[in-house]
Design a protein around this nucleic acid. Structure first.
Length: 612
RNA sequence: CGGGGUGUAGCGCAGCUUGGUCAGCGCGCAUGCUUUGGGAGCAUGAGGUCGGCGGUUCAAAUCCGCCCACCCCGACCA
C-alpha cells in the first residue's frame, strides 16, 4: 500500500524527490493534510533501526559494540560494514561539518574514482611501493587497476592535464568518498576497517610559502571540524610514511583504545607521535675511570637476568640490538632500560628493509652470540648508538664471548660507534626537547592528518605550471585526510556510558527524540504528533518513537541510540499538559510546555537544520 | 604470515569430553488478549543443510582429515 503511494507520488508532476519519504510517513499516520516540513520524517515504527539487547560476540570496544547494538552498523565481512539509516545520518552530519569548513577554507569538492589505472601509480613509484595493502584487480581486458587507498596520483594527473598557469593557483580540491585498504588485520570495528569513508583534500601552490599557507588553512579548518564534532583532540607532529613529504601533523582523539601513542609536554605546546617524539637526554653517567673487566655471567642473556645477577641498574647496560639491514648485520646500541623505536630507526637507516635478527639470522652469523653481543670489539658493518650513550661510562654490556659480560665500559675509550642518533622512544616523564618540561604519553585515535608534500608527486608526475615569467615549475602540493567513519567511532569512544551512545548535537542522527509513553492514549498521541510536526516544520531533526512499546523499551532504546535531547510525553502531560525535556548526557529533566521546549532547545544550541 | 580461539534459528549461547529421546535454552519474531515513567504477562506459533566438503560407523552437531569464514595476540601499517 505504501509502495503504491510512493510510486504514485513519484509520478506526480511538481513533487520533488526529497519529499518522497515525507509522503510515505504522512500516509502512515492517516489522512491529515499537512505541508511537507523542512526536516525529514523519522518515525521509529517506519525506520530501520534494528537494536540489539545483547552485544554481538565479535565486538570488543565500546564504539563497535554500541554502534552495532544501537542499529547504526552491521558487518558484511572483516573490516567491511553497512551503514544503516542512523549510521548513514551520522556520516552525513559529519560530512556536512567537513564540507562547510572545507568550503569555508576555499577548497572545492570533486568526486574522484575509486578504481585507478596502474599506469598512474607506476609514475609515482607507488605501484611497487604500496604492497599488498593496495587492493589490486584486473578488468576484463586484463588491465591492472588498484582500488585507491588515497588519491594523490589521480588528482595530480587531473590537475597537470588541465591547469598550467600561475593564475590558476592556488587550488585545493577535496572529495568525500570510499577508500579501500586491504589491511593486514582489520579490527576494532570502524577504527581499522578495510573499506572506509574518508575526506581527502589536495592543495596545489606556486611555491613553498603558498604551500605552507594552504597547510595552515587546512590545519585551522581541521581544528574547527574536530571541535564542532564534539571531540577532545590534540594535533601532534607526525611521520609521513607512505604518503611522503616533510612536514606533517596528525589530529588525535585521546582514547584508551587508540592504536597510536603520542607524547606531549605538560608545560609547552610540544606534541608528537611517539614515532618521532624527541626527548632531551640526561647527562650521561660516567664511570669511575676503572678499566673494563670481564665477568662470568653463565646463561644470563637478557638485560633483566644479567642486571639482577650483577646487581646493576638496567639503565647502566648497553643493549646491543642486532639488525639485518638490507642483508647486512648492523648493531644498534640503546640504554638497557629503553626501547628502540622502529620508525626512528627507519629514518636513521634510510630504509624500511630491516628487521631484528630472527633465529635464522643468528644461525647465519654465528660470530654474534645471542645474549652476549656487545659493542666492544664487535665486527659489524655499522654500529649506531642512541644519543644518550655519548660519553657514557660505567656501563655493562655483552662481551662477545659466551657466558661473559663486560663492566666499567666507557664509550669513546672501549668502543666507538660509527654514529650517534635518536633511536629510542620517549616515555612518560622524559624531558621535553623544547622546554625541558615533563613529557606525558597517551594513546590516541588518529582521525586526521595533514601533509606538506612539497614536490614529491608533482616532480614524479610532471605536474607543472608556467609562472609569470614563462618559466615552467613544479607545483608545491599538500594533502589532507580525515577518516570520516573512524571519526564517528572515535566520537563514540569519547561519548558514551554504560547505557549507550551520547551524540554531540552537531553530528547526532537527530537533535530531539520524542518519546510518547503509552502511545495509544489519545491525548498523548496527539500531543506527540503535534510536537513532531512543529519540529519538522521548523527544520529540526527529530525522531518520533511512535511504536507501541512499553516505556522501558522506549527508554532503553533511546539511551542506546543516544540522541542528545529527549521529549517525554507521559505523566507530566496527563497532570499539567507538559512535556519533560531530558538531557541524555546528564540525565537532567525539566517539565515545560511543548512550545517552550522548542525555544529551549534553541537556547541550548540546537541548530535548526535544513535538508542538504 | 605465525600463535590461540570460535562457527548450532535473526542475536546471545548450551549440547561435543563419553556417537544412539539431542535439535535445545534465553532474547527477538508472528497472532490474540491484558499491559505502558525504565528492557511487561499469559496463550499459541513460525524459524536451523549444527560453516563447507570428504572419511570412519549400523548410526555423526558429537570422532578423523582437508577447506572456508570470523575473532583475539603478534608481525605489519593508513
Amino acid at each position: 500500500m505504501e509502495t503504491e503511494k510512493e510510486l504514485c507520488f513519484e509520478r506526480m508532476p511538481g513533487r520533488c524527490g526529497k519529499h518522497g519519504f515525507s509522503a510515505l510517513g504522512g500516509g502512515h499516520v492517516g489522512s491529515r493534510e499537512r505541508k511537507p516540513g523542512k526536516g525529514s520524517e523519522m518515525r521509529q515504527s517506519r525506520t530501520f533501526i534494528p537494536t540489539l539487547k545483547e552485544s554481538p560476540s565479535d565486538a570488543e570496544i565500546a564504539s563497535h559494540r554500541l554502534l552495532v547494538r544501537a542499529g547504526f552498523l552491521r558487518k558484511v565481512a572483516a573490516g567491511i560494514y553497512e551503514f544503516l539509516p542512523l549510521g548513514t545520518r551520522v556520516v552525513q552530519r559529519i560530512s556536512r561539518v567537513v564540507r562547510e569548513e572545507m568550503n569555508r577554507a576555499g577548497a572545492q569538492e570533486v568526486i574522484l574514482p575509486i578504481m585507478q589505472p596502474r599506469e598512474l601509480w607506476e609514475e609515482s613509484g607507488r605501484w611497487a611501493k604500496y604492497g599488498p595493502e593496495m587492493m589490486r584487480l584486473k578488468d576484463r581486458a586484463e588491465r591492472d587497476f588498484g582500488l585507491g587507498p588515497t588519491h594523490e596520483e589521480v588528482v595530480t594527473d587531473l590537475v597537470r592535464s588541465n591547469l598550467s598557469s600561475w593564475r590558476d593557483l592556488p587550488l585545493n580540491l577535496y572529495q568525500i568518498g570510499t577508500k579501500f585498504r586491504d589491511e593486514i588485520r582489520p579490527r576494532f570495528g570502524l577504527l581499522r576497517g578495510r573499506e572506509f569513508i574518508m575526506k581527502d583534500a589536495y592543495s596545489f601552490d606556486r611555491d613553498e610559502a603558498g604551500m605552507q599557507r594552504s597547510y595552515r588553512d587546512m590545519y585551522d579548518a581541521y581544528a574547527r571540524i574536530f571541535t564542532r564534532c564534539g571531540c577532545t583532540w590534540r594535533a601532534v607532529e607526525a611521520a609521513t610514511g607512505l604518503i611522503g613529504g616533510d612536514v606533517s601533523h596528525e589530529f588525535m582523539v585521546p582514547a584508551a583504545v587508540g592504536e597510536d601513542l603520542i607524547a606531549y609536554c605538560g608545560d609547552c605546546d610540544y606534541a608528537a607521535n611517539l614515532e618521532l617524539a624527541e626527548y632531551r637526554r640526561a647527562e650521561p653517567a660516567c664511570g669511575e675511570g676503572k678499566p673494563a673487566s670481564k665477568v662470568h655471567t653463565p646463561e644470563k642473556r637478557t638485560i633483566e637476568e644479567v642486571s639482577g645477577y650483577l646487581g646493576l641498574d638496567p639503565e647502566r647496560f648497553v643493549k646491543c640490538l642486532m639488525l639485518l639491514v638490507e642483508g647486512r648485520p648492523v648493531a644498534v646500541l640503546v640504554p638497557g632500560d629503553r626501547e628502540a623505536n622502529e620508525s626512528k630507526l627507519e629514518r636513521v637507516l634510510g630504509t624500511v628493509e630491516f628487521r631484528l635478527f630472527n633465529e635464522d639470522d643468528w644461525r647465519r652469523f654465528p660470530q654474534y652470540l645471542q645474549g652476549f653481543v656487545g659493542p666492544v670489539g664487535i665486527e659489524v658493518a655499522e654500529v649506531i648508538a642512541d644519543a644518550s650513550l655519548r660519553g657514557a661510562g660505567g656501563l655493562a654490556c655483552g662481551a662477545n664471548d659466551k657466558d661473559y659480560h663486560l663492566v666499567d665500559v666507557e664509550e669513546g675509550r672501549d668502543f666507538k660507534p660509527h654514529r650517534f642518533a635518536d633511536v629510542t622512544s620517549a616515555r612518560e616523564g622524559d624531558a621535553c626537547p623544547r622546554c625541558g618540561g615533563s613529557l606525558h604519553v597517551e594513546a590516541g585515535i588518529e582521525v586526521g592528518q595533514v601533509f606538506q608534500l612539497g614536490l614529491k608527486y608533482s616532480e614524479a608526475m610532471h605536474c607543472t605550471y608556467d609562472d609569470e615569467h614563462g618559466n615552467t615549475k613544479p607545483m608545491y602540493m599538500g594533502c589532507y585526510g580525515i577518516g570520516i567513519t573512524r571519526l564517528m567511532a572515535a566520537v563514540v569512544e569519547q561519548h558514551h556510558d554504560e547505557r549507550g551512545i551520547i551524540w554531540p548535537v552537531e553530528i547526532a542522527p537527530a537533535s530531539l527524540h520524542i518519546l510518547p509513553l503509552d502511545y495509544q492514549r489519545e491525548g498523548r498521541r496527539a500531543a506527540a504528533e503535534n510536537l513532531y510536526r512543529s519540529c519538522l516544520e521548523k527544520g529540526l531533526e527529530v525522531l518520533l518513537d511512535d511504536r507501541e512499546e512499553s516505556a522501558g523499551v522506549k527508554f532503553a532504546d533511546a539511551d542506546l541510540i543516544g540522541i542528545p535531547y529527549r521529549a517525554v510525553i507521559g505523566k507530566a502531560f496527563d497532570e499539567d499538559g507538559l512535556v519533560e525535556l531530558q538531557v541524555r548526557a546528564t540525565g537532567e529533566r525539566e517539565r515545560m510546555s511543548a512550545k517552550r521546549l522548542l525555544s529551549r532547545l534553541a537556547d541550548l544550541g540546537v541548530r535548526i537544520r535544513h535538508e542538504a
